[in-house]
Design a protein around this nucleic acid. Structure first.
Lengths: 141, 141
DNA sequence: CTATAAAAAGATAAAAAACTCTTTTAATCT
DNA sequence: AGATTAAAAGAGTTTTTTATCTTTTTATAG
């Protein structure tokens, strides 16, 4: 469903939500090791998220990545769209160039249901909320 | 969501459901041109589906691919599983190696909803039914 | 039984995604 | 100001997915 990159990105954002803030920034290495994902690759993803203002970062000593309060109040949709592109939520499930309610593919109407589920998945709770749930229930990222 | 291969496969199966039967077999080229997908690549996919008995084929003059009555009474789940693997319907949405109701990832419970939608999409109608709808409503494949 | 048509199989090539390494830039601390 | 730290940026490399080409097998028709 989501690309590998996107999965890494979501997990990294949740990790930052739990373990970082403006006073406690984390280096790429910290996050990469904690999540067991390739460091230099994750760096690229975090840079991309940072450029899109979905996470925050500063350079230099004591620099690193972190989630600002504002970042944490957003939901995961932006993260997904930033990495996999906005079309993951709208593109035709059969890959047809044109597919809409007007001109639907054979699976269009049913695909809407699953699409809705997907949107709710990333939209109906903030990153902070997900992160708090992870802490409360001691979930693994 | 589905790989490109899988999208081609679904469309090809629907095309066969509409335009072929045991007496009217189609060559790879016919299908590839009708769907505007790369011929040799589609050939591989059709061979794979044939090996898994999801579509039928015969060699030689007047040979080709077609859907038997039995093939057409199945649903699309087998097609998807044959190409993209069965795990598309069960693997963790965050890519975690272990993720279950016992040991859920942060998005697990909500992901179930979308997963359910996906399964219904491919399971709750037969290929024949989808194909008939395509004909009735003149849908594009 | 021979020629032919079409799928099956195998081997190869191109494109995209995933991953790595090196250099540059910008903060901070002494 | 100079040294240092860590992100940003750029330039590769590897792996996987997508696509192509060639040869082999098998069924049919003449």
């Amino acid at each position: 469903m989501f690309s590998k990159s996107c999965k890494y990105a979501i997990r990294a954002v949740l990790y930052l939500a739990i373990h970082s803030d403006a006073e406690h920034k984390l280096g790429v290495k910290d996050v990469a090791e904690a999540l067991d994902v390739p460091g230099p690759f994750l760096a690229k993803l975090l840079q991309q998220l940072s450029r899109h203002h979905l996470i925050s970062s500063t350079k230099g000593p004591n620099g690193g990545f972190y989630l600002s309060e504002t970042n944490a109040r957003a939901n995961l949709r932006g993260v997904v769209e930033s990495i996999d592109g906005p079309e993951v939520f709208s593109s035709c499930i059969l890959g047809l160039p044109v597919c809409s309610s007007q001109n639907p593919c054979p699976l269009h109407s049913r695909a809407q249901l699953y699409r809705q589920g997907l949107l709710e998945l990333v939209e109906d709770q903030t990153i902070k909320e997900v992160a708090e749930r992870v802490e409360r229930q001691e979930l693994k990222i």
